[in-house]
């Protein structure tokens, strides 16, 4: 009888130990999986840190570093989703050449408008506040802290199989996508997509020249 009780005792102890070990393993596994699972916040933070890294280099020079910044930003953006959001359902009526051309021109326009702002970078920092995820759509609220104010900047992202990508940015509550949509709509209505593409090209040429 004592043997049996000893056996039961040992058996239970081993079982518990094994279980504990297993749970621990599972725990670490699920924990590390949770940590690896990319979130909109992580995606934005990685990009912002990379861009800030360039801006904060002691020998930062906008004209020289522009292409590096541009490459970073292009990687973080979902240009197709951005273009589709600006156009709306009419997107499907465009042929693939028009779609690609619009997407490229829009990205160039956004770059010209917003990346140029980084030329003026001094000592601003970025604070991350809130992250929201609803299915495949996410948003990240941040603030750019300047000497006189905090500028709210909200990134909107969509989830693809390869991670989270930005399709819109709200600066002081004004959405980039909505603003371009409002601006392009009258031209699109009157002159169609080809008229709009022509105007966008002319504007970009004017900026370069």
């Amino acid at each position: 009888m004592p043997r049996l009780s000893l056996f039961v005792h040992r058996y239970t102890r081993n079982l518990l130990l094994t279980l504990g070990l297993l749970l621990q393993l599972l725990g670490t596994a699920s924990f590390s999986q949770a940590a690896d699972e990319p979130t909109p916040l992580a995606a934005v933070k990685v990009e912002v840190d990379k861009v800030l890294g360039i801006l904060r280099k002691p020998d930062y020079n906008f004209d020289r570093d522009k292409s590096a910044i541009s490459a970073e930003i292009r990687r973080a953006f979902d240009d197709v989703a951005m273009a589709q959001s600006v156009i709306g359902l009419e997107w499907k009526n465009f042929n693939p050449t028009q779609q690609t051309e619009f997407k490229d021109l829009l990205l160039q326009t956004v770059e010209n408008t917003y990346i140029g702002r980084l030329k003026a970078y001094t000592n601003e920092s970025v604070q991350f506040r809130k992250e929201e995820v609803k299915g495949t759509i996410g948003s990240v609220e941040t603030f750019i802290v300047t000497s006189t104010k905090e500028i709210p900047v909200k990134y909107k992202l969509r989830k693809r199989s390869d991670g989270w990508f930005i399709y819109d940015v709200d600066i002081e509550n004004a959405s980039m996508v909505n603003t371009y949509r409002d601006m392009y709509r009258p031209t699109l209505g009157k002159e169609g997509i080809d008229g709009l593409l022509k105007q966008m090209k002319a504007k970009l040429a004017e900026l370069k020249g």
Partner: peptide, 28 residues
């Protein structure tokens, strides 16, 4: 830091650009 100029110069219709941005900003 010349924000106005940057938005103005790159817009195909600056009037519409600023109207849209203004109304969204106020709404926010």
């Amino acid at each position: 830091k010349d924000t106005y100029e940057a938005f103005y110069e790159s817009a195909i219709d600056p009037y519409l650009f600023f109207r849209s941005a203004w109304v969204q900003n106020r709404e926010g």
